[in-house]
Computed example of a mutant assay.
Amino acid sequence: MGLDQASAENLSTLLNDLADHLKVANRGLFDPEDYDLNKYSDLRFLHQIVVEKGRLSALETQAFVDELAMIRKK
């Protein structure tokens, strides 16, 4: 999967994968329309950490959700 390039398709893929890994019930936080492609590298960094880490504790999951909330368009 080539997620190196910032594109709308890759953004959507990253967010869907993050939602799956974080097992978040409210997937509204992962709507690609709510994110700016200028923040793609931040999202990719979070994605890499989540994927590498594997299982996350409840506190770690909440921390990642909080980070996503800060990256979203306001």
Rank of each mutant, 00 (worst) to 15 (best):
residue 59 L to P: 04
residue 42 D to T: 06
residue 54 G to N: 06
residue 62 Q to G: 01
residue 55 R to H: 15
residue 34 D to I: 11
residue 34 D to G: 06
residue 57 S to R: 09
residue 53 K to I: 12
residue 66 D to A: 10
residue 56 L to P: 10
residue 38 N to V: 06
residue 40 Y to K: 01
residue 62 Q to D: 12
residue 51 V to F: 11
residue 36 D to A: 12
residue 65 V to T: 03
residue 59 L to H: 04
residue 41 S to F: 08
residue 46 L to E: 08
residue 56 L to R: 12
residue 57 S to M: 01
residue 61 T to P: 04
residue 64 F to Y: 14
residue 57 S to F: 11
residue 60 E to Q: 14
residue 59 L to Q: 02
residue 44 R to A: 03
residue 43 L to S: 03
residue 58 A to T: 07
residue 56 L to C: 06
residue 43 L to Q: 01
residue 46 L to Q: 11
residue 38 N to G: 06
residue 52 E to T: 12
residue 60 E to P: 06
residue 66 D to F: 02
residue 36 D to V: 00
residue 32 P to H: 13
residue 49 I to V: 15
residue 36 D to W: 02
residue 66 D to W: 02
residue 34 D to S: 15
residue 60 E to Y: 07
residue 62 Q to H: 13
residue 63 A to N: 09
residue 41 S to I: 09
residue 56 L to M: 15
residue 46 L to S: 05
residue 53 K to A: 12
residue 34 D to N: 14
residue 32 P to L: 14
residue 58 A to G: 01
residue 62 Q to E: 11
residue 49 I to A: 05
residue 38 N to I: 08
residue 40 Y to H: 04
residue 46 L to A: 00
residue 66 D to H: 02
residue 59 L to Y: 04
residue 47 H to E: 05
residue 59 L to A: 10
residue 49 I to W: 10
residue 39 K to S: 10
residue 62 Q to N: 09
residue 49 I to D: 07
residue 56 L to E: 03
residue 45 F to C: 07
residue 55 R to F: 15
